[in-house]
Simulated assay, not measured.
Amino acid sequence: MQNHLFDLAVEVGPPQTVGRTEAGERRCVPITGGSLRGRLNGREVSGRVLAGGADWQILRPDGMADLDARYMLALDDGAQIEVWSRGLRWGSPEVMARLARGETVPPDAYYMRTAMRFETAAADLQWLVHSLAVGLGERQPDKVLLKVYAVD
């Protein structure tokens, strides 16, 4: 069973590329900010994505993108949450090329999912540390939208 936690809008900067390796094109996408809205512990929460994180990616030769992002959330109540998100984005060659060009593509045209773990010192959010979440993603030209669900 899944429990909706929050929605994230993660703002990103232009990718920095290392170049093509045997595994594929290695690149780093800087995380520049963003916002959070949801419900934790039965109460409405909001906050922001802090600048300074990054998504380290490998664009594989088969077109799939391996995603490995780390970033921080700051809730409006002062709690801070570290996010570690590993996932993938995959679609047809045409769709992946459109995404690579920065075009807006309907999220049902490709598959984007992440497994998410959290770390926080906030006493009332320790259950997050012991939970695994799944993010359903959508790539937009300047941000990634994630609907985040706890997996029971």
Rank of each mutant, 00 (worst) to 15 (best):
S85I: 02
G24L: 06
R48G: 06
S35E: 05
L146N: 03
L99C: 00
S46N: 10
D7R: 10
L146P: 01
T17I: 10
L88C: 03
A74G: 09
S35C: 01
A115S: 14
D68H: 14
R117D: 11
L128M: 09
R117W: 14
L75V: 01
R98G: 04
G63L: 07
G19T: 01
S46H: 07
E82C: 11
R70T: 12
P14W: 12
A97E: 13
E103Y: 15
Q80H: 08
R48N: 03
E44R: 11
G33T: 02
R48C: 10
A74H: 11
R60P: 02
T120K: 10
L146S: 08
G63A: 08
M116N: 14
K143R: 15
A123H: 15
T120A: 03
L5V: 01
G13I: 06
A122E: 12
V105K: 09
Y149P: 00
A121K: 13
G33H: 03
L50M: 14
G38L: 09
V134W: 09
R60Y: 09
S35T: 11
G13D: 10
Q140H: 14
I81Y: 08
L36K: 00
G53A: 07
E138A: 12
Y71G: 04
T120H: 10
V134E: 14
G19V: 06
M116H: 05
G135K: 12
Q16R: 14
R43L: 11
G91V: 07
V144I: 13
V95D: 02
L99M: 10
I58K: 07
L99S: 10
G42E: 04
R98C: 04
P141E: 13
G78F: 04
G13E: 05
R117F: 14
R43A: 13
M96D: 00
V95W: 08
A133E: 06
L128P: 05
G13M: 05
D7E: 10
R39E: 15
D152F: 07
D55Q: 03
T21K: 11
L75F: 11
W84I: 15
G24I: 00
G19P: 08
L73V: 09
I81S: 06
V29A: 00
G47V: 03
Q16S: 13
V105R: 07
A123E: 12
W56V: 04
P30N: 09
T32E: 03
S46A: 12
A9Y: 07
S85V: 01
L128C: 06
A123P: 07
L8C: 03
V129H: 00
Q140I: 01
V105P: 09
K147F: 08
A65W: 13
G38R: 04
I81C: 10
V151Q: 14
P141F: 12
R117K: 15
D152C: 05
T32D: 00
A122G: 06
S85E: 09
Y149M: 10
S131E: 01
Y149I: 00
R27W: 06
G137H: 08
V10W: 05
L88V: 05
R70G: 10
R89I: 02
N3W: 15
L128H: 04
M116C: 15
N41D: 15
R26Y: 11
W127Q: 07
K143I: 01
N3Q: 15
D7V: 07
C28H: 06
V12Y: 13
A69D: 05
S131K: 03
V45G: 00
M64S: 11
Q2D: 12
A74S: 13
E22P: 01
D62F: 02
V105M: 05
R98M: 03
